[in-house]
Design a protein around this nucleic acid. Sequence first.
DNA 1: GCTGTCAACTTGAGTA
DNA 2: TACTCAAGTTGACAGC
Length: 248
Amino acid sequence: MEQEEVGLALGLSLGHSSGHHQLKEQQSPWSQPCALLEPSLSLSLPAKDSLAAPVRIAAVKRELRMEEDDEATDKALYSVASGAVVAAGADDDEGCNSRKKLRLSKEQSALLEDRFKEHSTLNPKQKAALARQLNLRPRQVEVWFQNRRARTKLKQTEVDCELLKRCCETLTEENRRLHRELQQLRALNHHPHPAAFFMPAAALSICPSCERIAGAPATATTGGADRPKAAGRAAAHLFSPFANSAAC
DNA sequence: GCTGTCAACTTGAGTA
DNA sequence: TACTCAAGTTGACAGC
């Protein structure tokens, strides 16, 4: 087994019996690496009970009823000796064996971020190499990437949500505008525009430029000397409709 | 004390 | 079957 896999393979699990990975990879909720952030401390064991590493591991073994798994023990011993990880019992709530909050150092976070920018996922080799580089367990690197992906997705969801919100507001406003326009047209139907007197209703339409009523040109005119002058001026504009819309 | 952040964990699903 | 991932949860810790 590769060296970097050793820490990962420390299969000590407490209390949670249903996890299907636990015996392979996961540590107990209460176990934490003692000195992951401080390489200088990485070879020091928890001083609790003044037990040497093999003794403590033996105690852990008994506690976790894992005596039958010699391989796991070897891995645990290796891990303890390398400072990579320390297994702990559930009742061991002092020192590094309680579930202490681990904070990655700035350097570790920065490097992880850099790698995440390159690839949001890691293959096992990349994971192991990165873990070695950061003095972390591969499992920690894996967890960091999983959480990072989750954070990215959450942020993206928030951005998308905001975008949809704005889009919804725009469409609502457009809808209001169209309703107003419809009301105006209906009102015009009841109180027609003066120009409408001089042409059949079917010939009327809206100038897309000035949004006034427009109609077909001369063909619709009724002529007549008694036509009001104002209406005539309106017609002068409206009867030369869309071709002249730039003049609206 | 409350709240937000984040590492670590559990669980279920997908895949080679 | 082992492995990985997403989603959800837990617990420690920091800042207010």
